[in-house]
């Protein structure tokens, strides 16, 4: 049986191997996705993002357990940062998900960002499709711990959950642009800590300043550690799913995301072409020396490289 058949028969090893092949830019993985793409689209994708240490992994574990009570199959892509220096990574999200390892209807995969910015990895887009083909009903993408502007998750997920914790800063943080703008649902985790109510209120006030829309992101206080109010949070996530599906907005969101994905793929290929030309015959080396000596300027140097791929 080949790997494609094994994937469709829900073989975990086949699923795992395909994700690796995709991460390593293996042509065969891409061909399998091309062939099976019309079988995807039924999984619902929830992005979980938030600052480091806010409890994303624990919350992912709890939400998965809640979905498992309903018999849903769950895939989890847990992303942690790759070192820009060594290319290595410590992927530690599984620590909080130990109980799920043996559940035959849960598949957890840790991924390094491998140089990709924005809180996810380049292969995450494809890995979601592989988990969809594998038969997951829900797929959680847990981003790296984010700061203020890593918002690529919004281009991958149907619903974005922002996990915050009390006392992360003053109320100006809540009105800043960036990650605060992408959430469909807010969770204030570690709700037993002082300041949880204040944080909730600051976010609510910020949301009140938004233009009036049919859907307003809910803000839910939870404690992942103590397993409190996880059911409420899941209900809010599914309310958003239902809203998108009832209003057919889901198609708009998915088309928007696909635009980004297609452009992303095109960008990658063009970048590779540029890199190939730039390093061919030490052209980049030569140009950088000339620019440093002021015999050339960066803009003309760029034009010379770009001219080479236009032929």
């Amino acid at each position: 049986m080949d790997i494609q058949e094994r994937l469709l028969k829900r073989d975990k090893r086949a699923c795992a191997r395909l994700i690796s092949m995709l991460e390593n830019n293996d042509e065969e993985a891409i061909n399998i996705i091309k062939r099976l793409f019309n079988k995807t689209g039924s999984a619902y994708v929830i992005g979980i993002t938030g600052p480091p240490g806010s409890g994303k992994s624990t919350l992912t574990d709890r939400l998965t357990k809640e979905l498992r009570k309903e018999g849903k199959r769950v895939g989890i892509l847990a992303i942690d940062p790759t070192s820009p220096f060594s290319g290595g990574a410590i992927l530690g999200d599984r620590i909080r998900m130990s109980d799920l390892a043996l559940d035959k209807d849960v598949f957890i995969r840790s991924m390094g960002t491998r140089g990709f910015l924005g809180g996810v990895s380049k292969a995450t887009w494809g890995a979601v499709k592989i988990l969809d083909m594998y038969g997951c009903d829900y797929i959680f993408i847990e981003t790296v711990g984010v700061g203020q502007s890593e918002i690529d998750i919004v281009k991958m997920a149907d619903t974005v959950l922002m996990v915050l914790i009390p006392n992360m800063g003053d109320d100006i943080q809540a009105i800043k642009a960036g990650i605060m703008e992408i959430a469909d649902v807010f969770a204030i985790n570690k709700s037993d800590l002082d300041g949880a109510d204040k944080t909730k209120m600051e976010i609510e006030m910020n949301l009140d300043l938004n233009e009036k829309k049919e859907y307003r992101p809910p803000v839910v206080k939870v404690s992942a550690q103590k397993n409190e109010d996880i059911d409420i949070l899941l209900r809010k996530l599914r309310d958003h799913e239902k809203y998108l599906k009832d209003t057919e907005l889901i198609h708009q969101i998915r088309q928007r995301n696909l635009k980004t994905e297609i452009l992303q793929l095109a960008e990658e290929e063009i970048l590779r072409m540029i890199m190939d030309k730039a390093y061919e015959n030490d052209l980049l080396e030569e140009l950088s020396i000339k620019v440093e000596k002021r015999e050339e300027n960066p803009y003309t140097a760029k034009e010379k490289i770009v001219a080479l791929i236009k032929d």
């Binding site: 990574a89 992927l91 130990s98």
Partner: peptide, 19 residues
């Protein structure tokens, strides 16, 4: 191993062989 360029998945304490 991280510094040697490897991706290390750390699973935490008290794991059963099955896990």
């Amino acid at each position: 191993l991280r510094d040697a360029g490897m991706e290390v998945i750390y699973t935490g304490l008290r794991q059963t062989p099955e896990q």
